[in-house]
Amino acid sequence: MTHDHDALLSLFDHEMRERARPDGPGVRVERTADVVRQVGAASDWNGVVWSAPDLDAVRADAAIAAQVERFTELGLAEFEWKLYAHDRPADLGQRLRAAGFVAEEPETLLVAPVADLPTTVELPEGVRLRTVTDAADVELMARAHERAFGSDWSRLRHQVLARLTEAPDSFVGVLAMVGDEPVSSARMELYPGTGFAGLWGGGTVEPWRGKGIYRALVAFRAAIATERGYTYLQVDATEQSRPILQRLGFTALSTTTPYVYRRTA
Rank of each mutant, 00 (worst) to 15 (best):
L253I: 11
L156D: 15
A66E: 15
E78L: 13
A60G: 02
F101D: 07
V36F: 08
V205N: 01
L199V: 08
R163D: 02
L9C: 12
V39E: 09
Y214Q: 07
G75R: 03
T32W: 13
A33R: 13
G249P: 08
T204R: 00
G75C: 10
D116Q: 12
I244F: 03
T238F: 02
P192I: 08
R17V: 04
R70M: 15
D116H: 14
E189R: 14
T238K: 01
V35W: 14
R19G: 03
G210H: 05
T255L: 05
A252N: 00
V39Y: 11
S170I: 00
L253Y: 04
L8R: 09
L76P: 08
G202Q: 04
R130I: 04
D236S: 11
H86D: 14
L164G: 09
E239H: 04
V68L: 15
M141L: 06
H5W: 15
E107H: 14
A66Y: 10
A90E: 12
L74R: 15
A52R: 13
Y230I: 10
T194V: 02
P22G: 01
T231E: 14
M177A: 00
L156E: 15
D34W: 15
F101S: 04
D54V: 01
D137V: 02
R262V: 12
P106Y: 09
V172H: 13
R97H: 08
Y84R: 10
A85N: 11
A237P: 09
T108V: 13
V35T: 14
A162L: 05
R88D: 04
W45C: 07
V174A: 09
D56I: 02
P192M: 03
G93D: 06
A237T: 02
D137C: 07
G195V: 08
D54R: 08
G198N: 13
L9G: 02
A167N: 06
P106R: 02
P207F: 06
A85S: 15
R247S: 11
S51W: 06
G210R: 00
V138H: 06
S51T: 14
P118R: 07
R21K: 09
G40H: 05
R95Y: 11
P89T: 03
A103L: 09
A7E: 14
L92I: 11
G26Q: 07
T119V: 09
G229Y: 12
R28A: 13
L96P: 01
Y259G: 01
E166N: 10
S170Y: 11
R155H: 11
F220I: 07
A135G: 06
L164Y: 07
T194F: 06
A115L: 10
G249M: 10
D61I: 15
L161C: 10
A237S: 10
V68S: 09
D13L: 12
T108R: 09
K211E: 10
A52H: 12
G150Y: 03
A42P: 00
L76A: 10
D13G: 02
G100V: 10
R209I: 08
R95S: 02
G100T: 10
R215L: 04
V260S: 07
T238P: 01
L175P: 02
T133I: 12
